[in-house]
Structure formats: C-alpha cells, structure tokens
Amino acid sequence: MAASLFVQGLINGLNQGAIYALIALGYTMVYGIIRMINFAHGDFIMIGAYTLFYTIPLMVNAGMPAWMAVIIAIVVCALVGVLVEILAYKPVRKAGSMSALITALAMSIFLENLAMVLFGAKPHNVQAIFQLPTVRVGSVSLPLNVLLTIAIGLLIMLGMQFFVKKTNLGKAMRAVPQDKDASTLVGINVDRIITLTFAIGSGLAAVAALMYCSTYPRVTNDMGSMMGMKAFIAAVLGGIGVIPGAMLGGILVGLIEIFVKLFAPGWYEAVTYGTLIVILLVKPSGILGKNLGEKV
C-alpha cells in the first residue's frame, strides 16, 4: 500500500515538477540574459491556457487534431513575450534594475486585469487535448495523458539543453550575458538574441499551460501568479540563470508539493519555503548556481 502510494506520488510529483520546470526555464533564461526577473512570466501561462481554451474546440470542430492548438498557443505566447519585451522592457533596460522590476510587476498586473476584462473572472474549463485512458498497474493508477505530458516536458528540457549547448543561436544566448561587447564584436546581434530568449521562454510557458490543463483543466485570469511564484522559487532553488538548475529546481518543488500534500497536508508551504531557505543558506546561488563573483 505504502509503495503504491509512493509511486503514485512520484508520478504526480514529476508531472507537477515538469510544469514548474518549464516555467522556471522561462524565468531563468530571461534572468540569465538580462539579469531581470520577469514577474509577468507566470501570466504567460494564463495566456497559453486561454489560447488552448479557445482553440481546442476550433480545431476539433474543423476536424483537425486537438494538439494543433498547442502550436497556436506556443506562437501566441511567444508573440506576447516578444511584444512585452519590445514595448515595455526594452525602453527601461538601461534605467536600472529597480525600474525593470517595477515594470515587470506592472506588466503582470496589467495582463491579469486585461484577461479579466476580456474573458471574465469566472473559471473556464479547458477541453482535454489527449483522450487517453488510465491504466491500472496493481493498485497504482496511471493516467496515460499525465505520463505523456511528463514525457513531453522532459523531452523539451533535453531539447533546450541541446539547443543552448550545441547550436549557434544557443551559444549566442550563452555568450550575450557573459560579455555584450564581445558578443557584438563576434557578430551577435545582442538585441535580437534577447528577443529570441523572450520568445523561447514564453513559448515554453504555453507548453507548461498544456501540461497544467491536462491535469487541472481550469483557466482563471490569475492562475499565473501562484504558479509563477512556485516556479520562481524553483528557479532560485536550482540556481537562477542556469538551465539545468531550473529543471532540477522545478522537479524538486513539484515532488515536495505532491509528497508533502500526500503525507502532511497543511505543511506544504512551510516545507517548500523551508527548503528554499535552507538551500540558500548553504549555497546562496542555488543548487547548481554559479558564483557570479568570478574573475572577469
């Protein structure tokens, strides 16, 4: 009994964790490149979820596969991310980190209120994208759509790691935060790489929205704040600015959440924040974080 409960928790925790990891990736990539916490990032998930809410029925009615809606959501989120960067963040980029922070907070509030005006305050139910059965193995029930989303999440994380390590654009994304002048000198268009980073980070939020909606098919205008907060904690826990750190932090926060809720409901927030505090005390830059005070 305890073993099956554990397996169940592990699967749900991985599912939750993969969602946080994908969101944390968005925080960490943007932080990595311009040293800014994009507090509106959580709200991109809400935008992704609303896009799914409206486009899944469209796809189904048009006789197209429902997963095509995810592509649309990725494109919409990437576009919103790029617009937010160009219209709101770029103009204050040279004005200091406090201005950037306040702009990001304002953007978050703006997006949530805009969503309330456009879509109303009552929750909407998102249609399922994958109609997969739940199989039972012993006393463990395995919803196949959850397994599928975990697989998608992990695959995307591996893909990101490959992209950043091996491709030309990925290398440019690593080079820009290390030295903007040197990046320009070797031929990197720094502004374009920053925009690309926002596009990718925001696009990942759409995938996170898909994963979230396959588990909790509810969309509200403020769903992004809570998830954004937890994913932000995940990013800091794993080491902000470090891609594998975001993945590890996300999975950890997801596992902690599910297991604590399973075995000691009510303690979940205390345990999450407690872990964060302990880890930051031991290693202020996060589990995989690099010490930023290196020699230049």
């Binding site: 290398k171 690593r174 080079a175 030295d179 002048d181 040197a182 000198l185 070797v186 031929g187």
Partner: peptide, 27 residues
C-alpha cells in the same frame, strides 16, 4: 576584427568555445 582593451573573452566558455565564437559570423 577588434581585440578590445581588457580582453573581453567569454569567461564561462572554454578556450575552444571562445575560439569558435570568433567564427560566429562565418563558420
């Protein structure tokens, strides 16, 4: 090409990666 004052290498990349970045515009 410009070798700037104060070097401006990419500190968190390896020597090989730094050299490779030199070919970013033309591989």
């Amino acid at each position: 090409a410009y070798v700037p004052e104060g070097r401006h290498i990419f500190p968190q990349m390896t020597v090989a990666e730094n050299l490779e970045m030199g070919t970013y515009a033309d591989k």
